[in-house]
Amino acid sequence: MSDEPLLKVSNLTKYYGSRLGCADVNFELYPGEVLAIVGESGSGKTTLLNTLSANLEPTSGEALYRMRDESWRNIYELSEAERRFLTRTDWGFVHQNPADGLRMTVSAGANVGERLMAVGDRHYGRIRDTALDWLGRVEIAADRIDDQPRSFSGGMRQRLQIARNLVTGPRLVFMDEPTGGLDVSVQARLLDLLRQLVGELGLSAIVVTHDLAVARLLSHRMMVMKGGHVIEAGLTDRVLDDPREPYTQLLVSSILQV
């Protein structure tokens, strides 16, 4: 991990009219670091993620991002062209429902290759080789490259979505409940894969989850949200082993033991 952060967020606030989405969020994210945002439904964690990934405009506050040329830019002040370019090259967004992040009517290979073609790759053979390589890395058999994601299982779709996002070598990936809706054994396999890829590629990631086990396995640091506010933040192991806030204690003690 380098000493300079990748993302600096200060006083980020999002209101929906008079209703609070999230308020006064401050944090710094370092290269190679995985940050988990946990909390109950309606606590503002998805609002925060959508605001951070520039899908929503914040009411106030700023998020400074260190671009590839080392310049610091407020992501809400980028032009639309710059922002769209950033989101499909240097960033990734893994949706909870893979159908939201994939093109369901084109083949797996084209899904992975789309970002490459969007940045100007015009060589079919090279695009296909890259797609094959990435399908292998997310454990999808090479002979499924020409199949549409419609014919894939939920776990395979989620892995394909991850490959599609990582193909341009992004430095920051947003994930919204990446294991939601998958059964437990598939979840475990996906988490394993994610942890391995994040480690290999030195990615930074912001993961929204209500599942503390996902936070424990994937993240270095975590933030606990309640009612739109961050009530506790710290190293994942510290927060989970020694929760300070009463709400966090409640959250940790609610995990089902088998």
Binding site: G109, A110, E114, M117, A118, R128, I145, D146
Partner: peptide, 17 residues
């Protein structure tokens, strides 16, 4: 914004099929 990558996705699908 001159984002025409999608057009090539269609041509890619043609060649793949």
């Amino acid at each position: 914004l001159e984002e025409y990558g999608l057009m090539h996705v269609k041509l890619y699908e043609d060649i793949a099929r």
